[in-house]
Design a protein around this nucleic acid. Structure first.
Lengths: 223, 223
DNA sequence: TAGATTGTTAATCGATTAACAATC
DNA sequence: TAGATTGTTAATCGATTAACAATC
């Protein structure tokens, strides 16, 4: 039953769900017990029907004339996204990006707790980053097993990404959060989510190119 | 004319375009002059028609029986994405994430050159990160003007994001690459591209929750 | 020519928006 | 009751896929 609900939630809806949290927390702090879809939609710049569909898809219903119960909404979204049940994770690659992620306090509120980092550089072994130990990569499989780690965060150079992913999968990792520029191949039961900076940069710079061209064109016509 | 082509390219296509580059470079290195859409599609796990549509949308056509000219393809994509014309950028926020981005060598091949970082912490002023100076934020507007900087990369804490974005816009920045968790509001002629880690993490963890629930359910049925 | 490959037009699919009925 | 708000069904829109004609 539960899985059926899960399956029906679209990718777009899942990506929007975290956006609701800050405004719901604010409403809770303001002592409001319910909130209308119109209010949420306005704050987020969405259509009211889209808001109701998003919430309906994770099983939360409102009440006519009243709106949606704030507390239930918060709990429902947290439960759906697994924020109520914190997962431990290892970072592989203790460079600047790995350190940045290890040092970011916000992930724990999103159900993710980074508990250690791994690297190949011996000068880093034994150090602590934001209170988390840096260990040698060869110890990764043993520690994954012992600590029941399910998530690995990849922040190694792109060239090493596939090899490191293979190690992680072999060690029993179930999900990879891939921050490298490389596309990695894994067995189909393994979850891979990629943060694709090149794609994001492509959107930004193609827009910049396009507005620059438009400006040039206007200028030429005026001369 | 050019703008019309630009406008018709979909968001999904733009995000896919960077993926073509590595395989085209490999084909070039292997001395191949042309490449079929079937070959590209297979490497990327896409449909062949989708590949042809992606390329057609940025104005590149193939030849029946031969495929697409590799060199033209590379040049066409680079031109469309502005990779042939490197833009200088400033990073605001010289924390770990800012340092990671400043130290990443790959952006220059993608048309982005980070030339300096800004921060509020006086102990960082005058230091260099990957050869780029860290300067005090109060000097940002002057330097943006003097160096004709168009892009600012935001890596400050979420709470400071809007204030810093306002400063950047006021200084004449035309595009913001927002790595903070905050949604920022800017005038409509300013380009904002956000790297939304919370959305990405939501996809990862909701999938993890969903497979865990499915496993639990199967186990219950067996008992 | 024959056959491989491109390019176009139509069909499908999924997400969003519009219209409106149901409910408190 | 009247009116605000939700929830559902239909329409629209955009992206992807399928079918097939055009080309070298």
């Amino acid at each position: 039953m539960e899985e059926i609900i899960q399956e029906s939630v679209s990718y777009s809806t899942i990506r929007r769900l975290p956006l609701y949290m800050p405004l719901l927390k604010a409403a809770l702090d303001a002592g409001e017990q319910s909130i209308s879809s119109a209010k949420m939609a306005e704050t987020l710049g969405l259509d009211t029907v889209l808001v109701r569909k998003d919430l309906a898809s994770i099983g939360i219903t409102g009440q006519a004339r009243l709106g949606f119960p704030v507390r239930e909404l918060i709990e429902g979204i947290e439960r759906f996204l697994g924020w109520d049940n914190i997962s431990d994770a290892f970072v592989i690659g203790a460079g600047n990006l790995g350190r940045a992620l290890a040092g970011y306090a916000g992930f724990e509120a999103h159900g993710l707790k980074i508990v250690g980092l791994f690297d190949n550089d011996p000068t880093k072994f034994g150090k602590f980053i934001a209170g988390k130990p840096v260990m040698e990569l060869s110890k990764f499989p043993h520690l994954v097993h012992r600590m029941h780690i399910q998530i690995a965060i990849l922040t190694v150079p792109g060239i090493d990404a596939q090899a490191v992913a293979d190690v992680a999968v072999e060690a029993g990792i179930r999900a990879l959060w891939n921050f490298t520029p490389a596309k990695i191949t894994v067995p189909e039961n393994i979850i891979v989510e990629r943060v694709d900076l090149a794609a994001s940069l492509a959107v930004l710079s193609s827009r910049l190119v396009s507005t620059a061209r438009a400006a040039e064109y206007r200028q030429q016509k005026n001369l």
